[in-house]
Design a protein around this nucleic acid. Structure first.
Lengths: 337, 337
DNA sequence: CTGAAAGCGCTTACAG
DNA sequence: CTGAAAGCGCTTACAG
């Protein structure tokens, strides 16, 4: 505690630790990197660790990055953070990254209300790889050739993908409704040009087309409560009113329920409604929503694992996570099938 | 386009640009930092910028950070990202930061489902300052003495704060309910040890105490739909059932509505319910919630502005953002006042 | 108006 | 088993 060289400028450096422990900077570096085994005597290693502790030493990451040519940080690009869904993806990704000593920087882009510049003009562009989720087609084209894994995206692209099996989820919705006896189906489709929504529309169309006597009408809507309500109203106003409304998102389903109620229609008595995602909202509204559970946190974690493999020089397999149908109170047999 | 020295290892450096433009590295640095005025001839500056463009040069941030001793990155610590509220704070903070060339790294902490380690053990700890929101008391104690601004936190701490005026918001709720004729008030209080909730409880107690003939009962609940529903059930089961339920969060209010419905009680006919936050949920449920609008995105932006001031050596003033009462359909006069 | 040099703090061959 | 040295890419005095 006596004559330790107190570093002049705030934080102690490895040089300070070396001085305090009476060894060289190289020794400090080797010990603190956990590479002492068979190279540094136990006594010396002990001394280094104690000195580091005492001084409160933490390595300067900028220097390490510069030397190593890598930052141990990856960028997560999501369309917005105004959705629990992407918050969950981040949480999963950050957890998986932390297990490997990596950090995650999120960038909502392109986000109307978010940062205006591209992720790569931002100050924190010191990055080893990119995880991008649910991007509209072409949004990421022509950008950095950094190692990249795509989440919830068209698997036919060049980058490895980690997806939900939305096709299976949508088929389960169609089968559930068919079993209940619904024949006139309305689809409240998200007006978002992304793989997942095209996939859902295609599967639902095919499923209904495959059933004799069944018909499908479709309206597009922003994923927003007011817009969803209006779109649902248009569907519900039709002379051949659908007995079931399949929605691309729980929020859209909430809007659909509001539209039904405004027309004096009971859910699920007069019209059944299904959602997609199974985030918090599905159980907050009344009736609670029949929906497809998409494990967003796991998607983030698996995506990060794949990216870490990629950074490690391996080629990760593309994976598809099952989406599970959760039947709650918003679906029932139609009154007059 | 002819004999440009193609950099060996991927990315071009300022040295490559210097060589391509036929100048020194210093000149490149000065020009690209925008400090050429009166120091470098226009022709030279032109040549540098063209060479940089052509090579696709982008400065290595690790090297810049090392040299400058600062990273132009700040850390945003929030309790969780499983809440739209904190997503909005991030969005606002990131926007304000980007305007000044700063990046923001979010860290949900302590978050059960999030990264396990403290923000300062994480890989991305290369940071100039900290913005922390809605932390439980003492959570940030004993950490880095980095410049810090607290959001939605006790203003009596050492760090500058940027807050909502929750006291005023809660007073508006109490006045609204009083004007409607409610006398028996139930408070569904968040079981979270944070400044904002203690403030709300204190203000509501005082407001009710100040009205002759009025009474207050309080139950604590996690901010979670199932827990809120149970807590609301306990309040609604009392012989002197409250005619109005004041909730610390819209999600809690949604749970309260469910509890009422389960008991055959109409909202707002038999019991009025108010929320707090006015995030998406408030308009997704039925009836739509009377609530206090808390401008979370603005909180993030103002907080970042304050932190940037602090990093600039100035001492920002603490600010308090008004929370506005939004009257919707979940409150009405009690049937038997 | 421009260049040569130092140095930020780290890690990793290379000597010994 | 340990140390001296080089070098990652940048910015900023300092010369000229």
């Amino acid at each position: 505690m006596e004559g330790d060289a107190v570093p002049k400028t705030g934080r102690p450096t490895s040089k300070d630790v070396a001085h305090a422990a009476g060894v060289s900077q190289s020794t400090v570096s080797i010990v603190l990197a956990g590479k002492a085994a068979g190279r540094i005597s136990d006594a010396t290693a002990q001394a280094v660790r104690q000195a580091a502790d005492r001084l409160g030493y933490r390595p300067n990451l900028a220097a390490r990055s510069l030397r190593l040519g890598q930052t141990r940080t990856v960028l997560l690009v999501v369309p917005t953070l105004s959705s629990l869904f992407f918050g969950a993806i981040y949480t999963g990704a950050a957890r998986a990254a932390a297990e490997h000593g990596f950090g995650v920087v999120v960038y909502p882009w392109p986000d109307v209300s978010g940062p205006a510049r591209s992720p790569f003009a931002a100050a924190h562009e010191a990055i080893d790889g990119i995880l991008a989720s649910s991007m509209a087609v072409g949004v990421l084209d022509g950008l950095d050739p950094l190692p990249r894994v795509m989440l919830d995206s068209d698997p036919r692209g060049e980058a490895p993908t980690v997806n939900f099996d939305v096709a299976e989820g949508m088929r389960a919705v169609a089968a559930h409704l068919a079993a209940l006896g619904h024949r006139r189906i309305g689809h409240l489709a998200a007006a978002v040009d992304a793989w997942t929504f095209r996939e859902r529309a295609g599967v639902l169309s095919a499923a209904v087309r495959g059933r004799p006597g069944a018909g499908l009408v479709r309206e597009f809507t922003e994923i927003e409560i007011g817009a969803a309500r209006e779109a649902a109203g248009r569907l519900l106003d039709r002379p051949d009113r659908p007995t079931a409304l399949v929605c691309d998102d729980d929020l859209v389903a909430a809007g659909a329920c509001k539209a039904a109620r405004a027309l004096g229609l009971d859910v699920p008595g007069d019209v059944s409604v299904t959602g997609f995602d199974d985030m918090l909202l599905a159980k907050a509204v009344e009736p609670e929503l029949t929906t497809v559970r998409l494990p967003a946190e796991e998607l983030g974690a698996r995506g990060m694992a794949a990216l870490l493999e990629l950074l490690d020089g391996r080629r990760p397999a593309s994976v598809s996570l099952p989406g599970e149908l959760v039947v709650r109170a918003s679906t029932a047999a139609p009154r007059r099938p």
